[in-house]
Design a binder for these strands. Structure first.
Lengths: 270, 270
DNA sequence: GAGTGGTCTAGACCACGGT
DNA sequence: CCGTGGTCTAGACCACTCG
């Protein structure tokens, strides 16, 4: 089960290829890819450091005597768990531990309140999806202000958000300054912060990145994301709804006092 | 882009196969499986009802003129988004909307407090994983009480949890009643509830089900789960840590006042 | 036993990142 | 340009469920 080093070449200049080992994964009732994942997982902890690049897929597959598709199934799972990072044209690297991002502060607050973490991209009018319109209480097909924002963590984008604000929520908005750009986005947020915030509710679920979100997150379309839906209440109405998609591979969402909680990847153990 | 019905047989007794259509998915810059997913997604909303069983994979693949593996890639994504449910030996069915499960009540509370939703399975001594031990502040290798619980929603298991309680947190526990079963589990929870709860922190991340959790959730090992890690503080120490894995396909985790929030599957739109 | 989804293979070509 | 991961094919066999 452990990873015996390859017999030849055990000098101090052992390459990444050497350290992966060549343990066969036959003779197992469990699927090959599952066993393979376990073996690789242990190798990652023992023999590799964060950021290090693994041998390429064709080579790994040959080394473990499996088809490339089978190997990829194992890599996919490890990537889903945030242990690996794969980039086309570059290679597969060992991922750093997931970053904890706080998604629920002590006190409820309007988006854009403390100008923290989130970076406004732009603002446009759009007809929200029916599900969002239902939450907002607007008529189907009614256009609402839609502010796009990006959340950065240590310089990299970890989340993309669409904030939907019905015109009724921001009556003070000067319709003259309605150029579709970042200026209008700031105006909408400013008006929103004037309102009294009654409360907010959040939910988290698994989803896959839409094409535009994927681009913003530097991922391929369909990449797994954690979808955080927030509903902001004011004057007994829903004043705004935010749908934020967080990169599931790199993010750990924290609630309550954000503290150093367990990393999922440290919980590996079959 | 829409789904033209098959030319032949448009009687009122159209079968499921008919309603899937035969729209070709070539002539596309985007990947076939992505386009396929979109087409199927629309068909699910338009032509199918919850619980209905789809044509089998070989037939769908033939109908869309793609390899079965390609079709499966599309189905996989739809399942990840909670739109489909696949069971070996049975078939692929249209999944009901995700159920909202509350994972953070208004006021912090000890596990087992209101005997709600969670069902105690058993209790044993175990040496928690290093990451958990670090959170607990116990020595590596130290054995702690480990209560296994299951969360039911409408009769089906939606989450499996391991609650780790160091012996120091429950000094009043009579070591005589230390039979490894449910009785001890209840005793541990009872003692825990005697303590003053100072606060709790939670985090959510994506993971894949370990073999035992998968069994408890009626899923295959490796199935996507939302891992909720909770830390309970008392007397300026970490009194307990809970690691709960929720079925990502069927669950929507709610925070704050649990309300009818948006369903991710209603947010589909590329 | 028949039918389903799950696993696996051995190829091929494509899209992208860096050189 | 080359090497990488991403997509796709056309098969095969296995594990499971159910009648």
């Amino acid at each position: 089960m452990t990873l015996p080093a390859v017999g030849h070449r055990v000098t101090e200049t052992a390459t990444a290829e050497d350290r992966v080992g060549t343990t066969r994964v036959d003779t197992a009732a469990e699927p090959k890819y599952w066993h393979l994942k376990t073996v690789l997982s242990e190798a990652l902890e023992t023999e590799f450091t964060v950021g290090e690049v693994l041998p390429n897929e064709r080579e790994l597959a040959a080394r473990f005597n499996v088809a490339r598709a089978t190997l990829r199934q194992a890599l996919e799972q490890l990537e889903l768990e945030g242990r690996l990072q794969r980039r086309r044209g570059v290679g597969t690297t060992v991922a750093p531990p997931r970053v904890g991002v706080s998604v629920m502060e002590e006190r409820p607050a309007w988006p854009g309140a403390d100008g923290e973490a989130w970076q406004t991209v732009d603002c446009a009018d759009s007809t929200p999806l029916p599900a969002v319109a239902r939450l907002l209480g607007t008529a189907a097909g009614e256009r609402v202000h839609t502010v796009r924002r990006t959340r950065l963590s240590y310089g990299v984008a970890v989340a993309a958000e669409s904030l939907y604000v019905p015109a009724a929520s921001v009556p003070g908005l000067s319709s003259i300054a309605a150029s579709g750009g970042p200026a209008r986005a700031r105006a909408v947020l400013r008006e929103l912060n004037r309102l009294e915030l009654q409360g907010q509710e959040r939910s988290v679920e698994l989803g896959s990145a839409r094409a535009d979100d994927a681009r913003q997150l530097d991922r391929l379309p369909g990449a797994p994301v954690l979808v955080v839906t927030s509903r902001y209440r004011s004057a007994d109405r829903t004043a705004a709804v935010a749908v934020a998609t967080y990169r599931a591979d790199t993010c750990r969402l924290t609630f309550g006092e954000s503290g150093g909680l367990v990393h999922q990847q440290d919980l590996a153990a079959s």
